[in-house]
Amino acid sequence: MPLLVLSGALGAAPARAQELNDARRIAIAERLSRSTVTITVRRRGIGSGFVVGAERFIITNGHVVEGAGRRPVSVHFPGGEVLDANVLVIDARTDLAVLQVAGRAPAPPIALGDSSRVRVGQSVLAYGSPHGLSGTLTQGIVSALRDNLRGVGDGRITGLIQTDAPINPGNSGGPLVNARGEVIGVNTLIISQAGGSEGIGFAVPSRLVRRLIRDLRDRLQNPRASAPPVRTPAPAAAASNAPVTAAPLPVWLGIEGDAFSGFGIRGIRVQRVIPGGPAAAAGIRGAEDPAPAVVRRMNVPWTGYVILALDGHPVRGWPDMIRLLGGKRPGDRATLTITVPQGGMEGSAVVELGAPPASP
Rank of each mutant, 00 (worst) to 15 (best):
N187A: 11
R156K: 11
Q221K: 13
A107G: 10
D218F: 14
T136L: 06
S129F: 10
F202N: 01
G159Y: 03
I141P: 02
G121D: 12
D95F: 06
N178F: 06
L208Y: 14
I190D: 04
T136H: 12
R156M: 10
L133V: 14
L189C: 01
T188M: 04
R180F: 15
Y127R: 00
R150K: 12
V152C: 03
S172R: 09
G155D: 01
V98W: 10
R211L: 13
I167C: 00
L149W: 01
P166F: 08
I141F: 07
T188I: 00
I161K: 01
G181P: 07
L189N: 01
P108Q: 07
G195Y: 09
R119K: 14
G185K: 01
G199W: 04
V204I: 15
R214P: 00
A203K: 02
L212D: 08
V152E: 10
A105E: 06
A126K: 08
F202K: 02
R219W: 13
N187H: 08
G132H: 08
V142M: 07
G201D: 05
P130G: 12
G140Q: 09
D218G: 15
R117I: 01
G201S: 09
P130M: 11
I157M: 05
R104W: 00
N187K: 05
I190V: 14
L137D: 12
G132C: 13
L220F: 09
Y127K: 00
A97K: 11
G153V: 01
N168V: 12
D218K: 15
D215C: 08
L149S: 01
R117C: 04
Q139N: 03
P169K: 07
N222D: 14
P106G: 12
G113F: 13
I141H: 04
F202D: 02
V118I: 15
L112F: 10
T138M: 10
N171D: 14
N168R: 10
L220N: 05
P205M: 03
R217I: 14
Q100A: 14
T188S: 15
A179I: 00
D218P: 02
G173Q: 10
G103K: 05
R117M: 12
